[in-house]
Design a protein around this nucleic acid. Sequence first.
DNA 1: ATCAAGGGTTGACGCTGCGTCAGGGTCAAG
DNA 2: CTTGACCCTGACGCAGCGTCAACCCTTGAT
Lengths: 257, 257
Amino acid sequence: MLTIGQLAAYAGVTVRAVRHYHQIGLLPEPERDASGYRKYGAPAVVSLIKIRTLAEAGVPLGRIARMLDADGTAFAEAVERIDAHLRAEIDRLENSRKQVAQLAAGDSLVLPPPVVAYLDRLREIGASERMLAGERDGWILIAARWPGKVAEWIPDKFAQLEDPRIVRLYQVLSALMETKGLDDPLVLEAVDLLVELAEEAEAAGFDSGVAEGDDMFFALLDNLADESDDRAWRLRELMRERGWDGWTRMRRVTGQA
Amino acid sequence: MLTIGQLAAYAGVTVRAVRHYHQIGLLPEPERDASGYRKYGAPAVVSLIKIRTLAEAGVPLGRIARMLDADGTAFAEAVERIDAHLRAEIDRLENSRKQVAQLAAGDSLVLPPPVVAYLDRLREIGASERMLAGERDGWILIAARWPGKVAEWIPDKFAQLEDPRIVRLYQVLSALMETKGLDDPLVLEAVDLLVELAEEAEAAGFDSGVAEGDDMFFALLDNLADESDDRAWRLRELMRERGWDGWTRMRRVTGQA
DNA sequence: ATCAAGGGTTGACGCTGCGTCAGGGTCAAG
DNA sequence: CTTGACCCTGACGCAGCGTCAACCCTTGAT
């Protein structure tokens, strides 16, 4: 005859767990001795080991209860479902491993490889780390919004970097983010470049290729840009004076009062 | 500007989860609009996606909080630990899969393969399913008590089955468990066989090979036998009249008053 | 015979990560 | 002006035990 502690030790579970199983009716309450101690026989050990095996596999206790008094066929079916669930869980964790590893790599995270390559290219042309962080965050949003489209747009972004003015723009903006001042002549250069490029794009008929209803999403991206640096607002103001607004999708504004 | 619902949708989590993250300080509370609605910017989406990625990997929210405002090195270390944990978890689940699969196979469970082979042999010589179930439970206990020793003992058990009297004993006991009566002549045959074999073993000097202090464990195994069938007690009584007691480790008794 | 250590007993609260009411207020559309 | 779809706070519920608390029982040493 076993005490609860011995039973628990044999089965490799805690005393508390055994009592819990009693409480929820998963393991039947055994007889008590004169002083109220529970006393167990061997079958309890066997049951407990079965329960532990299933519980460690992640089977909810409620389902274990139903399994233990099911017939052979039903039991086999249940086992099949459990195995399927285990496989799914394993896959999920393997996936998490990749995701988290990318998190450590800094870039990527939920970013598709082409975007990572693009970010690497930006780093090569001299974009600062803060700049890259901002770009990365933006692409995370974009990838979340249009998971499939990203691969289509990245080539265009690469193509843009062929234009030395765009390279210069990234460099200027990067430099701005690393300095503290506001009245830097770099600000003016940045605005000049932005306006010039915007007007050129307008002349070419921008064709963003994106649905109209997504104004809110672009506002979100612009907001991201604004919050990445305090001086973003100042830059934007200067651009508005020159008739343009927006970061990710620029548009004409009528010079306001 | 996003509402909490939009934010949650972008990041692929529930509204409730976002509010929970606010409550525990994992995600900072944003500004409110005039009517008290929370309004989020883009950085919140990025944070949320990071949080979700880590949370899905099984990282406790408290640790995520500490990770997000850790520096690069500490973050990388944390990621390393998380990955180690993920690998361990995957291994554990793979293991569970095997265990559960054996559960389905009926035999085994936590039983090493040699025992399964032995049980199969028993089935071949005509042991009933109830008998096998009892044997299996016994071996589960033994495997739990002496995990390493089992492989040593199984060959002896196979060897015993070379003796036709032992085969006969299993068959008789199996037959008894399938009938309902008690006064069956099979009972007498079983007792005869048991006593004969016990005396022979005694003459050979049994050498159980097991420590002395394990009386309690054998009592447990005997108890398992007793509870496997109501007539076990009757059999045991008859044996005691012939000077023997116990199932798994028989010993002389002085014929009691 | 006594006493402390180390079992056992019930009962209850704590923890994680939210789901899910309840009981409101708001916003956009018809 | 209603309707439906959001938003708000506050609170309880869930699994699967861990961890007190406050008490009783058993056992071996003294």
